[in-house]
Write a protein that binds this DNA or RNA. Structure first.
Lengths: 233, 233
DNA sequence: TAGATTGTTAATCGATTAACAATC
DNA sequence: TAGATTGTTAATCGATTAACAATC
């Protein structure tokens, strides 16, 4: 079939598969690295190899954004990078609030990857009276730790869009409720707890224990290999 | 069809879907919490609600492990918990090596979730001469930071199975190569780099920037106008 | 043009879901 | 038994893959 207006519209319009969205940041990062190296053009084979995916998957993913390559040539690195960042919403910076300043919270606050990727840590919050009022250095700026009780005012003033929960599991749900009440609709949860939120809130979870246990599962399976003919037929 | 020997064997045998494996740790954690609360029996509806999944998905997942529930009653919390931990390979502890003792590495070393979930940090490594030889407190023990150059001996002596990479991106591939050469087959990668490894090595990646960018995508879609008029402050 | 490489198709594979028969 | 709840089925949905026509 020839590409009609309607098929083009379908490709360019709203429904980008979640699996594709989850890979776009990797493509974007690798393209940035290629730009730093002065590479101007890259083929789907080469880019895919750098990203650790198959060329077919890469081309399929990119086809959901539009048609930004040139047949017989490849992709212009800068052009493609721009269109991915546009699709991801990275063309203007997002404000991030970090809640919980234990070891992990401090590590996150010190992380340089925020600013370089279009995210600004605009506030740090904690529940504990001992921690509130102390000063943390975040991306060159000094930020005073504020109380989670002030989440509403803080989010309104800073226009923060994303909340990062780095608290113990016990207080994570309460913290999340306060962030949501304050207007936060995007949450990154590092606490080992399942958060209950309204449907319009997008929660993503990073869980060290879960990752380790998945590795343990495969590690165990690998060890069980040494009995090929015994057991089941 | 009636459940024949072959269908039972199929269900119990090797192929547990990856998507199911990825959820087992959550089920396990919630079951542990229920045990702590003294709950003895739980239905799939109740357990699913606590885990943030649908009851149908939960029952489907559990059916891959075997038949550990009782129709009309539900699941015995302790019994099910045991079988999940057995399936995940958590009945004996796994040794973990942490590489890279920057902010994140220190936070990981201080994390209490390791020991309580069947993982022991048995060694900490770094590349930098200034850091090697310093002492880090990990789970009550004092561990001396060793050189990545000694990875082979360290892995052999400690019988570590899992390597955690918490280094900058630039050295991540080199560190990974050394861990693999040392016999590590399971890697948890916190560095923002795509690692190239032999097929038998299982790599999982935790990536703050990727998670944030996925949130940004949905945030943008939700508003369709990131910062209405005022731009960033 | 001839060679190279994209964007799309169609087949396959795996995961999710709702419904319900089995059974406690 | 009657009510409750599992384990399984079958339909649906979404993601992956290989192949190739389009086209630079």
């Amino acid at each position: 079939m020839s590409p009609t207006a309607s098929t083009l519209t379908a490709a360019r319009s709203r429904g980008i598969p979640e699996a594709t969205v989850a890979r776009l940041p990797i493509y974007h990062r690798v393209l940035s690295a290629l730009m730093d190296q002065g590479v101007q053009t890259v083929s789907s084979d080469e880019l895919a190899r750098n990203c650790g995916v198959s060329p077919a998957k890469l081309r399929k993913d990119l086809s959901h954004l539009g048609s930004y390559g040139t047949r017989g040539v490849g992709y212009d690195v800068e052009f493609l990078s721009y269109h991915i960042s546009r699709e991801l919403g990275l063309t203007s910076p997002w404000g991030v609030v970090i809640v919980g300043l234990g070891n992990l919270g401090h590590a996150l606050a010190a992380y340089r990857g925020f600013a370089s990727r279009g995210f600004n840590v605009v506030a740090v919050l904690d529940t504990h009276p001992d921690v509130v009022g102390t000063v943390v250095e975040v991306g060159g700026k000094q930020l005073r730790v504020q109380s989670i009780a002030d989440a509403g005012a803080v989010v309104q003033r800073t226009r923060a869009a994303i909340g990062v929960i780095a608290t113990p599991a016990e207080v994570a749900q309460d913290v999340c409720d306060r962030l949501v009440a304050a207007g936060i609709r995007s949450v990154l949860n590092f606490a080992p707890a399942v958060l209950d939120t309204p449907a319009e809130v997008e929660v993503r979870k990073v869980d060290l224990a879960v990752e380790l246990q998945i590795l343990a599962f495969h590690e165990q399976r690998r060890g069980e290999e040494p009995l090929p003919e015994a057991m089941n037929a």
